[in-house]
């Protein structure tokens, strides 16, 4: 599904990713943990095609397609979805109008017919129920005046609407209370399938009680320095990152 080889990326001249390797197979959920500033969001941004980041070396492929060669919108159309750590507010653009445009552009890209207004609204109803997003929020401007939790749920709602192949969740759990966390996890779990993969970036092991990963990676100073089964997350929760840092520098 996702294959990253020796990825180097910099922002404003500083190299942040320094030779990152990662392979995610269809249906798998991989967690990426790591201390603040280790490059987790940078990885997500580079995969999504944020032009602030420059890839200097390496490759990233989604189902064999060269991701780095595509514009942001084409990556999304090919099935990549990023739930942002900090979703932006877009005054005046309604959530609904925005999603209909997105969905139809993706469908057009795939050579599918446009969704009828009726089918679209049915889909909105179904998917917003999944993340317990108030129907009224769907009609409001994108993220405008949403609480932190609403913004995160709106990201998962969009993911559910767009049905990506690969979803990257960048600290979707940070700042959420336990109820909101469960709702987000429930949304993700409902979408797990043998054809869909997840890259769950998180700071806290807590999320992984609800979204059980197949593999846990530790990202440190722009590289994946340790990978292991889900128990690795427990160990990180207990012992912090210092032992990893020591292992790396040793």
């Amino acid at each position: 599904m996702l294959e990253i080889k020796n990825l180097h990326a910099s922002v404003e001249g500083n190299e942040i990713l320094k030779g990152l390797n990662l392979e995610v197979k269809p249906g798998e959920v991989h967690a990426i943990m790591g201390p603040n500033g280790s490059g987790k969001s940078t990885l997500a941004s580079v995969l999504a095609g944020n032009e602030d980041y420059e890839v200097t070396e390496g490759s990233a492929h989604l189902d064999g397609e060269d991701l780095l060669d595509m514009g942001t919108e084409d990556r999304a159309r090919e099935g990549l979805f990023l739930a942002f750590q900090y979703p932006v507010e877009i005054p005046g653009v309604s959530n609904i109008n925005f999603l209909r445009t997105a969905l139809n552009e993706i469908r057009e890209h795939k050579g599918q017919e446009q969704l009828s207004a009726k089918d679209f609204l049915r889909l909105v109803k179904e998917k917003s129920a999944l993340v317990e997003l108030d129907g009224k929020l769907a009609n409001r401007s994108v993220n405008e005046g949403f609480s932190g939790g609403e913004k995160k749920r709106n990201e998962i709602f969009q993911m559910a609407m767009l049905e990506p192949k690969l979803a990257i969740l960048d600290e979707t759990d940070s700042g959420l209370d336990i109820d909101a966390l469960k709702v987000v996890a429930q949304g993700v779990n409902a979408m797990r399938s043998p054809e869909r993969s997840f890259l769950v970036i998180t700071h806290y092991q807590r999320l992984l009680d609800y979204i059980v990963p197949d593999v846990v990676h530790v990202l440190y100073k722009g590289r994946i320095v340790k990978s292991g089964p889900k128990e690795l997350a427990m160990e990180l929760e207990e012992k912090g990152y210092d032992w990893i840092k020591e292992e790396v520098t040793a």
């Binding site: 944020n50 942001t72 919108e73 999304a76 877009i90 445009t101 997105a102 890209h109």
Partner: peptide
């Protein structure tokens, strides 16, 4: 707001239509 343009593109909306949506919204 280039961040907004990026956000819309990250959902599969082409750059031209992203800008159009933002103009209309404004």
């Amino acid at each position: 707001d280039e961040e907004a343009v990026y956000y819309l593109r990250a959902r599969g909306i082409g750059e031209a239509s992203a800008r159009k949506l933002l103009v209309q919204a404004f």
